[in-house]
Design a protein around this nucleic acid. Sequence first.
DNA 1: GATGAATGAGCATTCATTCAT
DNA 2: AATGAATGAATGCTCATTCAT
Lengths: 219, 219, 219, 219
Amino acid sequence: MESDYCPPGGASAAKQPGHTHTAHGDAQRQALTEVAFHLIAQGGLERFRTREVAKRAGVNIATLHYYFPSKEDLIRSVVEYLSHEFATRQAPFTGAADEPLTEVRRELADSLFQLSEYPESIVAFLELFMRSLRDPAIRESLRGMDADWQEHIETYMVAGVRQGVLRADLNAEVAAAGLIAFIKGCVMQKMIDPDGYPIERIHVEIERWLVGYAGPGAR
Amino acid sequence: MESDYCPPGGASAAKQPGHTHTAHGDAQRQALTEVAFHLIAQGGLERFRTREVAKRAGVNIATLHYYFPSKEDLIRSVVEYLSHEFATRQAPFTGAADEPLTEVRRELADSLFQLSEYPESIVAFLELFMRSLRDPAIRESLRGMDADWQEHIETYMVAGVRQGVLRADLNAEVAAAGLIAFIKGCVMQKMIDPDGYPIERIHVEIERWLVGYAGPGAR
Amino acid sequence: MESDYCPPGGASAAKQPGHTHTAHGDAQRQALTEVAFHLIAQGGLERFRTREVAKRAGVNIATLHYYFPSKEDLIRSVVEYLSHEFATRQAPFTGAADEPLTEVRRELADSLFQLSEYPESIVAFLELFMRSLRDPAIRESLRGMDADWQEHIETYMVAGVRQGVLRADLNAEVAAAGLIAFIKGCVMQKMIDPDGYPIERIHVEIERWLVGYAGPGAR
Amino acid sequence: MESDYCPPGGASAAKQPGHTHTAHGDAQRQALTEVAFHLIAQGGLERFRTREVAKRAGVNIATLHYYFPSKEDLIRSVVEYLSHEFATRQAPFTGAADEPLTEVRRELADSLFQLSEYPESIVAFLELFMRSLRDPAIRESLRGMDADWQEHIETYMVAGVRQGVLRADLNAEVAAAGLIAFIKGCVMQKMIDPDGYPIERIHVEIERWLVGYAGPGAR
DNA sequence: GATGAATGAGCATTCATTCAT
DNA sequence: AATGAATGAATGCTCATTCAT
């Protein structure tokens, strides 16, 4: 069910200095992180309790604190986990690969995919976003996630403009930043109003924005 | 400094049945609500404490509970307060009233105005948005706020299309929903990255989307 | 059984700013302080637990923290309490009032009296003495207690020298400081070895020191 | 820096039955004991943590418990260590060896020496003294230390009386017990008030007490 | 000998809420 | 209308100790 992501020995910030890490230890950390992720998604950071994490992971509260000395450390681990999940997960490809606008459509489809298949990740992300407003460390992590996303979008936008698929005067940086904002905004609106929000029709509008559209009969 | 908004005697959900409402009581409720609003904006719902509200309002904690029997009641009152603030507040008008696109530009300018002048309202709104994911009552309130906003946008979009200022094939409902999402997304991105996020350039893109734009040389 | 000491309304450091003090509140504070005093004397600061204080005082742990926001506050209150006890308590007078050396003898008798009748006060004092080595606030309180004691001794030493009861060349300040050290040292030695330590015979030596003594047959 | 004291294989209470003692094991025990000593002196028994001892000694907490099965065992080892330190350490001799009163003066000078050069030993001793009030095993150790000290003093006091250097009617046992109390009391007073306490002038008084002194013009 | 992992019991402190006055 | 007092139920975190490897 859960991701089999296990941070490599040397890079994870979750590692405690002085600890020699064993496979078992990494597995425990991972299990605790995933339980924490679910609890944050379900009840928000407001109701997030280390005791509940320990309980659901089947370990003593002291064991949790053995791996994550403080609640903050555990939350940071969830940020890392989420960051990896978002970077890794991708909607199964459905469109034609050579079709113009493929990448943009994949992007939009991906947001719908995440929303329907991994709503917990979205909610947890938003919880951490709120916390990032007061916690510089988390803010940096989230900015890093956005920067990666932005870069990825820019790359295919530049290509799209060059191929004539996207509007010729499109500035890749601005457009990518706008697309991210648009997607995030849509996702949020869909969350409070899952039934009424016309997200697919808005996605069509996003394409029009990027392709350039002068209305029916134009040109 | 604070809004002089005072909910009318018969409509406020903060009112407790059986209480005889006096001017003094309403003032107390209002003062407590405003203090609560600031505390939610500053520390988030996670660190929001009724004792701190009472302390800053200069009343006993028991007095707070006299007016707001539970913490939830107080939070609901903040939702109402915010709802009124957003409905009332408007950026001072700077553009020409008869200029095409005036309304859309006012909308975008207004989001920047709120962001710079009333960041607390934005943060508090986002806090309550997160809570709305788990609290149906708050969800309804926020949906109501969005519905009002949506309706307002739709109105001037219909007019804009009729006047030929906006793209002829624009569906007002979808475009309004998209505009709200776009604005909310931009505001959030600006919040985590106040220095780097090119919000003004993105606003230009929003106009292009709504007006219809085929790139330089088109038409 | 317990002292009926109740700190006057305006002077006690145990008072919390913002609290209007009632007779009931003062009584609670006093009761908690006395329970704390006994527990410190019995188990030392090392085993001193606020929960145990609350339990023995018959109140909820939260009630204890209502009166003493932190453990430190409670300990400080015990310091004050002890300070008052030592200043107030006095051995019942047994010697002749007009006899020379009366005051010194009363002093020594008093130390024996405290040791036998109020051993808890002595132990608690020593516990706080140890803490004073790391806590400047407590250090100041204990210094104040010593200063009062020193002043009291100096007064009657000056008189004793003037009356020819004490050695003519006795410096009251130095002698008083020495007497305090001597008494404290004796008390401590008596505590670890209650049966073997010849405290009364040593008290005789203290008198000889202060009176001046050249050995049998001298002068 | 540290003492090279290493308790002989058969006598140490720190030794656990069933352990084969090796040079390495003794070194480990010694290192842990010294770290423990410093920590007790610095933070008191109240803040004394076995984990901190292990950490500073560079070993795992389980390793510490291999050598000292319980915290009490480690503390007892510190008592032994201190006992050895006090018995061994001596102020460098400065006075004339044949001068009368040499020994008493050496005693007093030694207390000042320990106070200025080894304040940690004094503080740790006092911490253990407090514990001895509740721990019979430690009480016995400390009594043993006092008994050795007492015996040493008695020896030279008897000689001093015989030589006419000390007061003829001085009872060596009582005087030695008094001297120890006086020295301990002075040291404690000097500790809470290092600047103000006139310890050297009091030492002069101690000599007068022991020598016998009827004031200027006497004899 | 040594250590990573694990834990039971506890600890000071917090917090929304209640109630007599 | 207002408040001082009180509390049950946590809450994050600690610590000496144990044990399999």
